[in-house]
Amino acid sequence: TGIVNVSSSLNVRSSASTSSKVIGSLSGNTKVTIVGEEGAFYKIEYKGSHGYVAAEYI
């Protein structure tokens, strides 16, 4: 489990890349469940599926 540490919002992406499609966003202080790690990204549970967020902001 981690907490989103941004002042505005954090993009949730379809894969572990900044060039991948943005599938949603999370606001600051949102609690997320981390299920894996790929490079600089965490794989998280997101809306019944999975998404990827930049690990530096969690």
Rank of each mutant, 00 (worst) to 15 (best):
T33D: 06
V6L: 09
A54T: 08
G51T: 00
V53D: 00
E56N: 07
K47M: 14
H50L: 10
K47F: 11
I58F: 05
G24F: 06
A55R: 15
Y52M: 01
K31F: 11
S15A: 14
I23E: 01
S7G: 11
S19F: 08
V53S: 00
Y46E: 01
V53P: 00
L10H: 03
L10A: 12
V35C: 09
E45G: 03
K47C: 15
E37R: 15
N11Q: 14
E45I: 13
S20W: 04
G2N: 05
N5R: 12
T30W: 07
G28C: 14
I44P: 03
F41E: 02
V6Y: 07
N11L: 15
S20H: 04
V12L: 02
S7I: 11
K43I: 14
Y52S: 00
Y42V: 08
K47I: 06
A16C: 06
G2T: 06
I44S: 01
R13I: 06
E38N: 06
V12P: 01
K21D: 12
I23F: 02
G28I: 10
I58M: 04
T18G: 12
I23K: 03
G2H: 08
H50E: 07
A54C: 15
E37N: 09
S7A: 12
K21Y: 08
G28K: 14
V35W: 06
H50P: 05
F41D: 04
T30Y: 06
S9H: 13
I34P: 01
L10M: 06
Y42M: 07
R13V: 09
I58D: 01
L26W: 02
S20G: 14
G36E: 06
I58Y: 03
I58Q: 01
F41K: 01
T33S: 08
S7N: 11
V35L: 15
E56S: 08
G28R: 13
G36P: 00
V32A: 01
N29Y: 14
Y42S: 03
I44R: 00
E38Y: 10
G2C: 12
I23G: 01
H50T: 10
G36S: 09
V6E: 06
N5A: 09
E38C: 13
S17N: 12
K31M: 13
S9Y: 11
K43S: 03
A40M: 12
S49C: 09
V53N: 00
H50C: 09
I23T: 03
K47A: 12
G51L: 02
Y57C: 15
I34F: 03
Y42Q: 03
V32N: 00
A54V: 13
N11E: 15
Y52E: 00
G24V: 03
Y57S: 09
V35F: 06
L26T: 01
S14F: 11
G2E: 04
S49N: 09
R13Q: 11
S19W: 07
V53T: 01
G48C: 07
I44T: 01
I3G: 04
K21M: 12
A55C: 11
R13K: 06
G36R: 05
S15Y: 07
V35D: 02
V6Q: 07
S15T: 10
I23D: 00
N29G: 15
S15E: 13
S9F: 12
E56A: 11
A55H: 07
S27Y: 09
G2D: 04
G48I: 03
T1C: 15
K43R: 08
V12D: 02
G36A: 09
T1V: 13
S14C: 13
V12F: 00
E45W: 09
V35N: 03
V12R: 01
H50F: 15
G28M: 12
V32F: 04
S9I: 11
A55E: 04
E56I: 13
G48M: 05
V35Y: 07
A54P: 15
G39T: 03
Y57K: 08
H50Y: 15
L26P: 00
S14Q: 14
I44L: 02
S17R: 07
S17A: 08
S15V: 06
V4T: 07
E45T: 07
S19R: 12
G36M: 06
K21I: 10
V4A: 05
G48K: 06
A54M: 14
V22D: 03
Y46I: 03
T30S: 12
V22G: 02
G51V: 03
G39W: 04
S27D: 11
I34S: 00
E37H: 14
A55Y: 06
V12H: 00
G39H: 05
S49H: 10
N5C: 15
S27G: 10
V4E: 03
Y52K: 00
N11A: 15
G24I: 04
S25N: 10
E56D: 08
A16Y: 04
V32T: 01
I3K: 07
N29H: 12
S25C: 15
A16D: 03
Y52A: 00
S17Y: 05
T30A: 11
T30P: 03
E56W: 07
I23R: 02
G39D: 08
A40F: 09
A55V: 12
N5T: 11
K21N: 10
G51I: 03
G51D: 01
V32K: 00
I34N: 00
S17Q: 07
S14N: 09
V32M: 03
S49A: 13
V22K: 06
V32L: 05
V53Q: 00
G39A: 05
S8K: 12
E56R: 12
S25H: 13
V22Q: 04
V35M: 09
G28Q: 11
E38H: 08
E45M: 11
A54N: 10
I23Q: 02
G39K: 06
A54H: 10
G28N: 14
G48A: 06
V22F: 05
V6I: 13
I34A: 00
N5Q: 08
S7V: 12
A16W: 03
G48D: 09
V12T: 01
I44Y: 01
S9R: 13
S17K: 07
G51K: 01
V12M: 02
S49K: 11
E45K: 09
S8L: 10
N5M: 13
S20T: 06
K31T: 12
G36F: 05
N11G: 08
G36Y: 05
E37I: 15
V4S: 05
H50V: 14
I3E: 05
T30H: 07
E37W: 14
V35R: 04
